[in-house]
Amino acid sequence: MTGVRVDEAFRCEQCGATWYYDKHHCPVCASHEYGTTELDRGEVLSRTTVEMTPPDVRSPNDLALVRFGDVQLIAQLADDGVSTGDTVEFAGEYRLREGDDKTRPRLRKVTQ
């Protein structure tokens, strides 16, 4: 994930397939030609609040499993007012783990 941002997925330049978790080649057409694409808005499929976390992770850690089109990922929520079925987007600047060298966005509820 060198260089890829938290709010970006990979996108195949040959077939247009998208994925979030690193692959050596496109999972659909096996092309090695791929770049990144920014994630827009996603739907929360499930959420949890983790109370017992590793030493350098915030506690509680609010997390959501989110679907952005073909891409699904689990990421930190910016606040706990998010429920299953809500629409979320990446926003803001936070340190996801203590000791991180830079800030990254968290998922925030989109209010129409």
Binding site: T53, A75, R104
Partner: peptide, 25 residues
Amino acid sequence: VHDREYAQGLTLPSFAGLAAGAYLD
């Protein structure tokens, strides 16, 4: 876990909590 999961502070109980919430729901 995957590097991008680790970056979010995910642990095995995190996955179990998400799955349990989805199942009960």
